[in-house]
Amino acid sequence: MRLTRRTGWGAAAVGVAAALALTGCSSSSATESAATGTAGATAAATTAALTPVRLQLQWFTQAQFAGYYAALEQGFYKAEGLDVTIVEGGVDIVPQTVLADGSVDYAIAWVPKALASREQGAGITDVAQIFQRSGTLQVALAGSGITTAADLKGKKVGNWGYGNEFELFAGMTKAGLDPATDVTLVQQQFDMNALLSGEIDAAQAMTYNEFAQVLEATNPATGALYQPSDFSVIDWNTEGTAMLQDAIWANTEKLSSDKAYQDTTVKFIKASLEGWIYARDNPEAARDAVVAAGSQLGNSHQLWQTNEVNKLIWPSKAGIGMIDEAAWKQTVDVALTTKNDQGASVITKEPDAEAHTNEYVTKALAELTAEGVDVTGTTFAPLTVTLAAGGS
Rank of each mutant, 00 (worst) to 15 (best):
A30R: 13
A30M: 10
A30N: 05
T31F: 08
T31Y: 08
E32G: 07
E32K: 10
E32P: 00
S33F: 13
S33N: 08
S33A: 15
A34Y: 01
A35F: 05
G37V: 03
G37M: 02
G37Y: 00
T38A: 15
T38Y: 06
A39T: 10
A39M: 09
A39E: 12
G40L: 07
A41F: 02
T42K: 10
T42I: 14
A43S: 11
A43D: 07
A43G: 05
A43T: 07
A44W: 04
A44H: 03
A45M: 05
A45R: 05
T46L: 11
T46N: 13
T46Q: 13
T47D: 10
T47L: 12
A48H: 05
A48P: 03
L50T: 02
L50R: 15
T51S: 08
T51W: 03
T51C: 02
T51R: 10
P52G: 07
P52E: 07
P52M: 04
P52N: 07
V53F: 05
R54G: 05
L55E: 02
L55N: 05
L55I: 08
Q56A: 11
L57G: 02
Q58M: 12
Q58K: 13
Q58F: 13
Q58V: 10
W59Y: 12
W59K: 12
F60G: 12
F60N: 12
T61E: 06
Q62W: 09
Q62N: 15
A63W: 03
A63K: 05
A63L: 04
A63M: 04
Q64K: 09
F65Y: 15
F65S: 12
A66Q: 15
A66C: 14
